[in-house]
Amino acid sequence: MSKSIKLLAAIGFVAAVSACAQQEEEYVVVEPEPISVEPVYTGKYK
């Protein structure tokens, strides 16, 4: 085999191994937003 084919095969192998490597899952906690805002008392007539 020529050197260029061996080089391309090696690069492809390294890319495949790195793509299939065990990846640590990221744990994200999202605070839920309130569904509605409670009305603020402003007086009977305004």
Score class of each variant (00 low, 15 high):
45 Y>V: 03
34 P>F: 02
16 A>K: 04
12 G>Q: 03
33 E>M: 09
19 A>T: 09
31 E>S: 00
21 A>Y: 04
22 Q>I: 14
17 V>E: 03
35 I>T: 14
24 E>A: 09
10 A>G: 11
14 V>G: 15
2 S>K: 12
4 S>K: 12
38 E>G: 01
33 E>R: 10
25 E>S: 06
46 K>F: 07
38 E>Q: 07
42 T>F: 11
32 P>T: 05
17 V>Q: 03
2 S>A: 14
23 Q>I: 13
33 E>C: 02
28 V>Y: 06
18 S>D: 09
29 V>E: 11
26 E>R: 08
13 F>W: 12
20 C>T: 10
26 E>G: 03
39 P>D: 06
35 I>N: 08
4 S>E: 14
15 A>S: 13
33 E>T: 09
9 A>R: 14
17 V>F: 08
21 A>Q: 11
11 I>S: 13
41 Y>G: 09
20 C>R: 10
18 S>R: 09
20 C>F: 14
23 Q>H: 12
30 V>E: 05
1 M>W: 03
22 Q>A: 15
13 F>C: 10
14 V>A: 15
32 P>Q: 05
18 S>P: 00
2 S>C: 12
3 K>H: 04
33 E>I: 03
40 V>A: 00
17 V>K: 02
21 A>K: 10
16 A>N: 01
17 V>I: 05
39 P>V: 02
45 Y>F: 06
